[in-house]
Amino acid sequence: MLDPNARMSSQTLLRERELSNLLKRMASGDRAAYGLLFERERSALETFFIRLCRCPSRSDDLVQNTFVTLWRYRDNFTARGKATSYLYRVALNQWRQWCRQENRRHDVHRDFECTVPPRVVPAPDREAERDDLKEWVWHSITQLKPPQREVFVLHRFEGLSCPEIAEVLDENLKTVESRLRLALSKLTRSLSARRAGSGREGA
C-alpha cells in the first residue's frame, strides 16, 4: 500500500501547527516548549535517521545533535516556512555533517556491502520470501548515493511531495525531481533484476 500519510491529512496539519507553535515558543527561549518538542519528535527523528543510516546508535547520536542544534540556534527559526521543513532541514544537516566530517560516505556503503549481502535465492515459504525481498530493497536503498537516498526517504517514508522536498533541501524543484527519478530508476531496475533472478532460480 502507498503511504497513508501521502496526502496532507488533518493530522498532518495539526502536527504542523503544533510543531510551529513549539518552535516559535522555543525560539523565544521557552524551555518547557523545547522539552515538549523533544518528547514529541524524538522517535520520529530516530526513525528518520535509521532509514537514512540504518544504525540505531548512530541515529541516537544524530537525534541528540539535532536537538542540541535546534536549541543552540533557536534564534534562527523564523515562522515563514513550514515548521516540519525546518525540522527536517536541521536533521538533514546533521546527517550530512556526519557523512562529511566522518568521511564515511563510501565507508557506509562498504559497511553495508559487508554486513548485508543480498540474497537472490528465494526462501522456502512466503513470509521468508517477503523478508528476503524487503532486505533486498533495503540493500538497494543503501546503495543509493546520499542525495538520492535523502530524497527517496523523504518521499517514500516521510510522505513529502517533490515541491516539499525541494523546500526542505533548499534545492531547485527540477533537481529534486531528477534525483528522485534516478533513485527510483535504480531501485526499480534492481528489483526487476532480482525478480528475474528469482524466476530463473525457481524454474
Binding site: 526513525t47 535509521i50 540504518r54 525481498l133
Partner: peptide, 15 residues
C-alpha cells in the same frame, strides 16, 4: 516498489 512492505526497517550496526 512502493507496494512492498518495508517496515520495520532491518537495522544494521556499523562495525
Amino acid at each position: 516498489l512502493y507496494q512492498i512492505e518495508l517496515l520495520p526497517e532491518p537495522v544494521v550496526e556499523v562495525a
